[in-house]
Computed example of a mutant assay.
Amino acid sequence: MNEPTEIKYPLDENGEPYYAATHISGVQGIDKDSIDTDLTELDHKIAELKNLIQEQDKALKLLNKRLSDVIGDTGWIEYQVPPDMKNKAVSSGFKCAIREVRAGNDLIGKHFVVRSIRLNVSEITGGSMQIAQLPTGFVTDNQSFIARQNGYRHPITIECLKNGKVMAFVHPDDQNKTNWVYQEFTWLE
């Protein structure tokens, strides 16, 4: 079996390995101008690659900026409800809040918006009553929903108007009672 050959280096006066310098006769015949030209060309290629990387980085940042709004979600945001009515239908339930989820933008040519409202409102009395005020612009087109309440009563009609008002319309049989709504509604724009 062949044993590996140990390579030995000469040691200098401090006992450290000493590497001999190459003598001129060891590199005779190498064209210095060719080496200089190759190195210059390599420097130019490196500069071109750096410029290309910078241009691609700028393009990627621009694309990310333009596409950053392709999907957006506001999360649940509370809205104005009279304090004696707000979050009282189901005290341990969700809060009165709105949410908007967007997909798409003008850059890709198609987009849509999903909007939601959560109602947890009590003390609804009479035939029609404003029960909340949404931020202006949240409702683009009037929306109407049928909301369930106490199982022995008629549904309540909920209207979300473009001006931000949220109205509750109670059936005549239930107008002399205290009504409530605990429900979530979602629509697509």
Rank of each mutant, 00 (worst) to 15 (best):
S92E: 05
L63H: 12
I131H: 03
R66W: 09
N120G: 03
K95G: 01
T74H: 05
D73T: 08
N142R: 07
A97P: 12
C96W: 05
L63D: 07
D106E: 14
V70K: 11
E78R: 04
P83A: 15
F94E: 04
E100G: 04
I108P: 06
H111R: 09
Q143S: 05
P82T: 04
Q56L: 15
V121Q: 02
L119N: 02
D84Q: 09
D57W: 06
G109P: 04
K110L: 15
F94G: 11
R115I: 13
V101Q: 10
I124D: 00
N142Y: 01
W76E: 14
I131D: 01
L119V: 12
I71V: 15
T136S: 10
V113S: 00
V81S: 05
T125H: 05
L134C: 01
E78C: 06
G93M: 08
G137R: 04
T136N: 14
A103M: 12
V139F: 00
R118S: 08
D106M: 07
I124L: 07
G93I: 01
L60G: 10
K110N: 15
I117Y: 03
V139N: 03
V113Y: 08
V70F: 14
G109I: 05
D106C: 00
V81Q: 04
D69M: 09
P82Q: 11
I117A: 02
V90A: 08
N105W: 08
P135R: 10
N64A: 14
D57K: 14
S68I: 01
P135Q: 11
V81I: 00
V139Q: 03
H111S: 15
Q56F: 13
K58H: 13
V139L: 01
K65F: 06
Q143A: 07
Y79P: 09
T74A: 08
V139Y: 01
V113A: 09
I98W: 11
S68C: 07
